[in-house]
Amino acid sequence: MFLINCPFCGEREQSEFKAGGEAHIVRPKQPTELSDDEWAEYLFMRKNIKGVQFERWNHVHGCRKWFNMVRDTSNDQIKAVYKMGEKPPVK
């Protein structure tokens, strides 16, 4: 169980959070303009990397806020946490 530094509440147990999949996937503004393939790309395709991954997390049993996290999935080291809409502070 890792400790997550919620950008709104500070460091808390992982059990208070929910993982929300890959970050920085923006919902298309005009879905009707998209072909089936383009829509499927948004809808289904997600990366699952061994290594540094950008993820969405939700402090579901806390402030209920969504935020972004950079995590190395090979050793669970968290490189950064940052608010929604912000640019990732690390590459």
Binding site: K18, G20, V26, R27, R56, N58, V60, R64, K65, W66, M84, G85
Partner: peptide, 13 residues
């Protein structure tokens, strides 16, 4: 509630 919050916070802030 979780889903609505998700859209509000991340897609339509």
């Amino acid at each position: 509630l979780g889903k609505l919050e998700d859209y509000l916070q991340t897609e339509w802030p």
